[in-house]
Amino acid sequence: NQASVVANTLIPINTALTLVMMRSEVVTPVGIPAEDIPRLVSMTVNRAVPLGTTLMPDMVKGYA
């Protein structure tokens, strides 16, 4: 099973992502692959992402 990116904290809308905000976890449904974490750093989220939420491609500006 592939690990996905999961919010390690509440990420407010329009926040630039940092490494400490994200962790990898095997979850269903599958979200952004964990190997993309380095690429996500400094990208911003377009909605509030609660703790434990899987990051989906449409949640990160410029990812999809």
Results as ranks from 00 to 15, higher is better:
A48H: 12
T18G: 05
D36I: 09
V41A: 05
P38W: 12
V41Q: 07
N1M: 15
V27K: 12
P50A: 14
M59C: 04
I32G: 00
A7D: 01
R47M: 10
M22Y: 03
G62M: 09
T53A: 14
V26F: 09
V6F: 02
N1H: 10
M59H: 07
A48S: 14
T28Y: 15
L10H: 13
A64L: 10
T54Y: 02
V60C: 02
M56P: 01
T44D: 05
M43Y: 09
V45D: 00
D36R: 09
K61F: 14
L40S: 00
M22G: 01
I11H: 01
P12E: 15
D58C: 05
A34N: 04
Y63C: 04
A16T: 09
P29Y: 03
S4L: 02
A64G: 14
P33S: 14
G52F: 04
P38Y: 12
D58P: 08
A16I: 14
V27W: 03
E25S: 11
A64Q: 13
S42P: 01
P50H: 12
T15S: 12
G31K: 02
N14W: 10
I37G: 05
A7E: 01
D58N: 14
K61V: 15
M59W: 13
V26I: 15
L55W: 02
M56A: 06
P50K: 12
I11P: 00
P29G: 04
P33Y: 09
L10Q: 09
L19P: 11
S24A: 15
M56I: 08
V60D: 02
M43T: 05
N8K: 08
S24H: 12
M43F: 08
T28W: 12
G62H: 09
V41E: 06
E35W: 15
G62P: 06
L51Y: 10
P33T: 07
V26E: 07
S4W: 03
Y63R: 03
I13W: 11
S24P: 09
L19A: 09
M22V: 06
A48Y: 12
T15R: 07
L55D: 02
A34I: 07
M21C: 03
T54Q: 03
L40P: 00
A34D: 06
V45C: 04
L55Y: 00
L51G: 15
L10P: 13
L55N: 01
I11D: 01
L51W: 10
V41C: 04
E35T: 12
Q2G: 09
K61M: 15
K61G: 07
A3I: 07
A7R: 02
R23P: 01
T44N: 07
Q2F: 15
P29T: 04
S24K: 11
M21H: 13
S24T: 09
L19K: 10
S4R: 01
N8L: 06
L55V: 09
P57G: 06
V20M: 08
T28H: 14
L17W: 02
T53H: 15
L10S: 07
E25V: 13
R47T: 15
T54E: 01
T44W: 06
V60F: 06
